[in-house]
Each structure stands twice: as structure tokens, then as C-alpha cells.
Write a protein that binds this DNA or RNA. Sequence first.
DNA 1: AGGAAGATCTACT
DNA 2: GTAGATCTTCCTA
Length: 188
Amino acid sequence: MDRSFYTRDPAAVARDLLGKVIVRRLEGESLSGRIVETEAYFGGLDPASRAFRGRKNYNSVMFEQPGRIFVYMVHGWWLLNIVAHLQDEVGAVLIRALEPLEGVEHMERRREKRDVRELASGPGKLSQAFAVTKALNGLDVTQGDSELTVVAGEGEPCTISTSRRIGVTKDLPRDLRFYLGDSEFTSR
DNA sequence: AGGAAGATCTACT
DNA sequence: GTAGATCTTCCTA
């Protein structure tokens, strides 16, 4: 995925990321997972967005170049986002769930769980399985040799469902969560 | 100093 | 399935 893929409306990017594969290079190993659930967040007009109250140190990546990793913490969990927005706008896509592909044993160890469906079926779980922390904030995912990249999947046909965003207290009147309805690996 | 936050786990019915 | 405890930052007072 090159930078132009991320330089679009966050909702379009969130939808099109479904089925793509995240590859994490860690300790000489490759962990990977297919994206099965995402949510789109905007800038100052979105009360659920980290960028709602303007640019701060911790959210500055959202205001910068699309295609970079944006990580922040909620309730003690790091959540993985990819910056996505039109030129001069603000936004990001939260990666909410993955279907584990390569490196399942490594993920089981990090998660201390055996059930494959418990490895990455939620934004906090996925970060634990893939070793996502603040250290990755700002990293460019469009670089092929990066510690974390996104590549096109097999291109299988899949049915895309939508809903309101999960857990947000002040949502927009619009479906901004996208997920593969057939997948067993979504967060619910 | 105190509280909220895009979640998860555990221990119950 | 639901309730309550807990996790770690950053924001606001």
C-alpha cells in the first residue's frame, strides 16, 4: 500500500483496509494477520476523535502525513491506528481486530492464551499479540522494510458489514465501524 | 491531585 | 450475558 491509499477519506480507507494483511517484524520473526475490523475517526468535528480538542503532543501524528502509525492508550491498552485523511485534513483508522496468520505461537506466548480467536479479536488484544507500543508511534507503514507494514491480501471476496463505533460515548450519527460479517475473529 | 479514556479480564448469574 | 475491578497515560483544575 503506498501513500496515496491513505490519502483519502478515513471511512473509505477503513473499509478498504479490510482483508489487507498487517506484517510485524519482531526479533527476526514475522507475525502477520488479516484485518477483519476497523473504525474511522476524523478531526475537530468528531467528538470521539483524539484530535477533537486540537493538536497536542500525544496526537500530533494524526495531523501529519497519512500512512504513519498513531498509537495511544486507553484503559491501560495501546491501540493501533494508521493515519488516513485527505491533504491538509485530520484523521485515522483504528485497527480493531485481526485474523492471525503467521507467528501464531509467538502471539499465544505474548497473550498467554491458546484459543486462536482470543489472540487479536479486539484493539487491545491485537496490540499485545503484535507487540505494539508507543515506540511505534509515527512509524511509516508504507516502507516495505519497516517494523510494521501493510500488504494486499489474497483478494478473496468478502462481505463487508457496518455499525456504529464501539465504546464511544459521543458518536457521530453515521456507521463508521467496518467489519467482515463472516469472520470469527472480530471483537464481537 | 483527580478523573476520564475508542478495553479487557474475571467471576458470577 | 452482565457487573465490577483494573490497566497507563494525558488533560484539567
